[in-house]
Every structure is written in structure tokens, then in C-alpha cells.
């Protein structure tokens, strides 16, 4: 018999995680090693705002909206990615955190079209953000939407460069790597090679980038066109979760239906099979029942 097998049947791969005691906003709480400050905050019902954080992806650490204060740290700490440590003392709501959040919202609001970003209006009010303070003549990422295929639209005037589409297209889910961040600084942008059109790229139209986009910069053409026509109406839409008909994997599809027509297909982020991802057939192959 070979002696290379190390685990007996039933042995879990990861050892159980140790308990960590920390303080959040004055309340002592117990978490598990490896938990993030954000996950602890959410379990305590503390609403820390996030934009670039997607619950199916590794933290991108880019938007810096979720910053909190950790006692002893020189600068603020991103709650989405920082793991808890024993005796950590976290403050989620202080003058410093409120200032940082206000400024992130003002910086984004003054450079990016946030009109289809959920919750952002409420946060602006909560943190007193006024993006017009910079004036109307400042640099923005305004540009026409890219409509270069019949399945989805890339409206980079709405892009906050959260990296989530790149991560979903790349190593974390799809592994197609059709898109990357190109350029640097304020010129950084999501692009395919040589800023070509999508049909000339490796894109396989799974739309998993759309699924993680937090601002509506990436949108199925159905939604984009209906919004343009003024017929998109979430209040008239139902969401029904069913199973994709296209192969035996069993991906759950959530069908967004308006006026008895499927207008968008997503998959639940907490579904063990898909983690919110689909292939081109599942996401776009619904027209045969229209």
C-alpha cells in the first residue's frame, strides 16, 4: 500500500478556526480567526458601507469606503479585508472614519456617474457628502457607453474601478481574463488588449462581470435598452429562482420578469453551485421562451 495518503476518510482539510476576542464600538465580541472586521460588524448589525466589496470575491480593497479605526494603527484600516486579531479595538464611527467616507463619496461622485449605484444617495446624505464642492470643471471619467455586442453594455462613465469585473473574469471565477485594468492613475481603466472591442477579445459572454458590478456600469442589453426607453421598472418586476435548462450542472437562475417577459437573469450569490456565476447560455439563453 502506498504511504503517501495522509488523511483518513472523513478528515476535514482545514483545522477548526480559533476564537478571537475583540472590541467593536465599545462592545466586546468573539469572532473566529480569519473573520474580517466587516463580517464581524455585519454580524453585530453595524452597517459599514461598502462599494468595491463583493460577497463572492476576495476583497479588492480599492474604494476605501469601509474604513474603520483600529487602536494603535497609524492610518485607517479597510474593514473588508483586515482580519480580526486578539484584543483589537475597532471604532466604526468616528470623525476620522466619517471624514474618509465622506471624501471617498465626494471624490467618486465628482468623477463618476453614480446614478445607478444602489444606496449611494443615502450614504451621501448620511456622511454629508457634496461632490459639487470641487466645481463643475474638474476631471471626470465621462465617456459614451460602449455598445459593441448584442448581449451587454459597458458604460465606463459609471466605473469606479472596483476591480470586481476583472477578478470575476480572471482568477477568482471565470478564468477567461478577457479584461484587465490598463493604464495608471486616473487614466486607469477596464480594457481588453489595445482597448479593442469585446468581439475581438477573449470574452465568452458569461456576464459574470455584470453580476459583480456594483454601479451598473456593466448591464445586460435588455436592461440598458429598457432604461434608455424609460420602461425599466423594478417595482413591476418579480424574481423567481429556478434551475438552468442547459446542462446537468444544476445552476440556479433567478429570472427577473417584467410584464411576463424575462428581462434579466442572475444567480444567487449564496448558491453553492454558482456563487452568482453563470455561462452565456444560462445568463442570455432565455429568448426561446419569450
Amino acid at each position: 500500500m502506498s504511504d503517501v495518503r495522509t488523511s483518513a476518510p472523513g478528515t476535514p482539510v482545514a483545522p477548526p478556526r480559533r476564537k478571537v476576542t475583540l472590541t467593536v464600538d465599545g462592545t466586546e465580541t468573539v469572532a473566529r480567526e480569519g473573520d474580517t472586521i466587516l463580517s464581524v460588524c455585519r454580524s453585530l448589525g453595524i452597517d459599514v458601507p461598502t462599494l468595491c466589496y463583493g460577497d463572492t470575491l476576495e476583497p479588492a480593497n480599492a474604494c476605501r469606503l469601509c474604513m474603520v479605526e483600529v487602536e494603535g494603527a497609524r492610518v485607517l484600516v479597510p474593514s473588508c479585508s483586515r482580519e480580526v486579531e486578539p484584543d483589537m479595538n475597532v471604532t466604526t464611527d468616528s470623525a476620522r472614519t466619517r471624514h474618509a467616507r465622506r471624501m471617498v463619496l465626494e471624490l467618486l461622485g465628482s468623477s463618476v456617474d453614480l446614478s445607478t449605484t444602489p444606496r449611494v444617495e443615502a450614504w451621501m446624505a448620511e456622511f454629508g457628502a457634496d461632490p459639487t464642492r470641487f466645481g463643475a470643471d474638474v476631471a471626470t471619467v465621462a465617456q459614451p457607453a460602449k455598445v459593441d455586442n448584442n448581449l451587454y453594455v459597458r458604460d465606463y462613465a459609471k466605473c469606479i474601478l472596483c476591480y470586481q469585473c476583472v477578478d470575476a473574469c480572471g482568477e477568482q471565477f471565470q478564468n477567461t481574463f478577457a479584461i484587465s485594468v490598463a493604464g495608471r492613475g486616473f487614466d486607469a481603466r477596464i480594457a481588453v488588449e489595445f482597448d479593442a472591442a469585446l468581439p475581438d477579445s477573449a470574452c465568452v459572454y458569461c456576464g459574470n462581470c455584470i453580476a459583480v458590478c456594483p454601479t451598473g456600469a456593466l448591464m445586460p442589453s435588455t436592461e440598458f435598452d429598457m432604461r434608455a426607453d424609460g420602461t425599466w421598472d423594478v417595482s413591476r418586476q418579480s424574481e423567481t429562482t429556478t434551475v438552468c435548462p442547459y446542462c446537468g450542472v444544476g445552476c440556479n437562475l433567478t429570472l427577473h420578469v417584467q410584464d411576463n417577459r424575462i428581462v434579466k437573469v442572475t444567480s444567487p450569490n449564496d448558491h453553492s453551485i454558482t456563487s452568482g456565476n453563470l455561462c452565456v447560455k444560462g445568463r442570455f439563453g432565455f429568448t426561446h421562451v419569450q
Binding site: 474604494c63 476605501r64 471624490l107 470641487f134 469606479i160 474601478l161 495608471r184 492613475g185 486616473f186
Partner: peptide, 22 residues
Amino acid sequence: FRHESCGQCVPCRVGTVRQDEL
């Protein structure tokens, strides 16, 4: 700093531009 910001995080990517403008 506007030229050299890598662009990864919002405070620096947009902040260095706003700082330069101001």
C-alpha cells in the same frame, strides 16, 4: 503624484487629481 498614483484606491486615484486641480 497625479502622474504616479497607481490608480488602485479611490483616495489616491481621484484625490491626487483633485489635489492637483486645487
